[in-house]
Design a protein around this nucleic acid. Structure first.
Length: 422
RNA sequence: GGAGGGGUCGCCUAGUUGGUCUAUGGCGCCGACCUGGAAAGUCGGUAUGCCCGUGAGGGCAUCGUGGGUUCGAAUCCCACCCCCUCCGCCA
């Protein structure tokens, strides 16, 4: 959510910024509504002021005169009218306000869509595989560690079952990622509810965005997390944080559920696009002046994991047109998948500045007695388990169908290799 | 699922014969005094959001949320939300 005062005082600046996104949003309607909103507000305040004045007089006198009684009735009636209109107007205003996307950082490259994202750097190189690389779903099935048929039997398509070293690989990656974040990067590990209330979904600003794509339990009015970003944002909703404690850095393992409503026919095979995926998330609440340093650091933390796993990847900076609704700036990491001969998204790190904080009312005080300010929030995947498993299988495959595991995982796996007999 | 208790200013808390209650007191915090310095003590200050105004400043709202009664509601009525305790069930 943008600051209403910013929209009112600098409409052209906002208009220019949003046009960079190629998404004007309901800016003009918003400005019109703001004018009538303020007119109504002023009238209601004037009416109330008169009411308060009369009230004061009645208080001193002990009882109201007939004139006062009559005037108060008239005021009350008019107030009701004005305030009904006012709350309608404010309702519309707020609704529109929540639909205005965040303003891209001025350094974000101009572009219409994903095709214009900018490659920033690459790390490593594609592994030399001395056979025709097989896709991870074939490898997983023939090794007996991934079972799509039984996943479908249990829960339908886009669900899968892991077995033996496959299940252990999932557990190993969760532990490895969390250990790195906690031991080397200073994040605090969190264990979160997987179900969350509607209020929490709204507070984090995810509800409009993910409503159709999230699973909802009507009986209990609860949602399955579409991403750990939601509960992590909501952790401090309506709170005033101690400025001395910032930044707060959290990491959490949490399954993520998505209905993939608009993705029929895309990535129907394998672990790339499933309804229940698994992810270790990074999250930070910072002071405004620190968020871009934190941002670069967080991108580095995600990269460091891929480097530790020896996976070839590239870093893209999203262009203005591909930026998510809440983000001012985003880097995507894409990992190399040999079978498809392409890079696939494996992490996305965003700075949301005060967009989410404003919406969820997360503020801080620099020192006792100072004004309240909004924090900045950042989130990043570090990393998703499922896509990482896919990358490890494909990049580590040997001609005999076995998989050589990254060294860093071997202590967690108790083996250096996943061989067919598993 | 059954029964009961409760939601007030950063935190704790007073306040239900409706007006002088945005609202008590304590803690915390800020300032002054005191002190060689500090602690203690004393005194004063200390909510948030919005509107009008260049500014000084003025105004409105907020006692879980929404509605109602009334000239006037933290205080009365209705609905809803949330938290806690006990019982039941249970990993």
């Amino acid at each position: 959510m943008l600051a209403p005062s910013l929209i009112r005082d600098h409409p052209e600046r906002i208009r220019r910024a949003l046009s960079r996104r190629h998404d004007p949003g309901p800016l003009d309607d918003l400005l019109t509504l703001d004018v009538s909103r303020r007119e109504l507000l002023q009238e209601s305040q004037t009416l109330r002021q008169e009411r308060n004045t009369i009230n004061e007089a009645v208080k001193t006198a002990g009882r109201p005169t007939g004139d006062q009684r009559q005037r108060m009735r008239a005021l009350a009636e008019r107030l009701r009218e004005v305030e009904t209109k006012l709350s309608e107007t404010e309702g519309l205003f707020n609704d529109l306000l929540l639909r205005v996307p965040n303003i891209p950082h001025e350094t974000v490259p101009e572009g219409r869509d994903a095709a214009e994202n900018v490659e920033v750097r690459r790390w490593g190189q594609a592994p030399a595989i001395s056979c025709a690389p097989r896709p991870h779903w074939e490898l997983g099935v023939s090794l007996g560690i991934v079972d799509f048929d039984r996943g479908a039997k249990l829960a339908g398509s886009r669900f899968y079952v892991l077995k033996g070293l496959g299940a252990r690989l999932q557990r190993a990656l969760i532990a490895f990622f969390l250990d790195r974040h906690v031991e080397q990067q200073g994040y605090t590990e969190m264990g979160l509810p997987y179900l969350i209330r509607s209020a929490a979904m709204q507070g984090s600003g995810k509800l409009p965005k993910f409503a159709d794509d999230s699973y909802y339990l009507e009986q209990d009015d609860l949602w399955l997390n579409p991403t750990a970003e939601v509960p992590l944002t909501d952790l401090h909703r309506d709170e005033i944080l101690d400025g001395a404690l910032l930044p707060l850095r959290y990491t959490a393992y949490c399954p993520s559920w998505r209905r993939e409503a608009g993705a029929a026919g895309r990535d129907t095979r394998g672990l790339i696009r499933v309804h229940q995926f698994h992810k270790v998330e990074m999250y930070a609440f910072t002071r405004p002046e620190d968020s871009y340093d934190e941002f670069q650091r967080m991108v580095g933390h995600a990269e460091e994991l891929l480097q530790a796993l020896g996976l070839h990847y590239r870093v893209l900076r999203l262009c203005t047109g591909d930026l998510g609704f809440a983000a001012t700036d985003t880097y995507d990491l894409e990992v190399w998948l040999p079978a498809a001969m392409e890079f696939r998204e494996i992490s996305s790190v965003s700075n949301c500045e005060d967009f989410q904080a404003r919406r969820a009312s997360i503020r801080f005080r620099r020192a006792p007695g100072e004004r309240l300010e909004f924090v900045h929030t950042l989130n990043g995947s570090g990393l998703p388990i499922d896509r990482t498993i896919a990358a490890i299988l494909e990049n580590g495959q040997q001609p005999d169908g076995s998989i050589v595991l990254p060294k860093v995982l071997q202590p967690y796996m108790g083996t250096e290799i996943i061989a067919p007999e598993n």
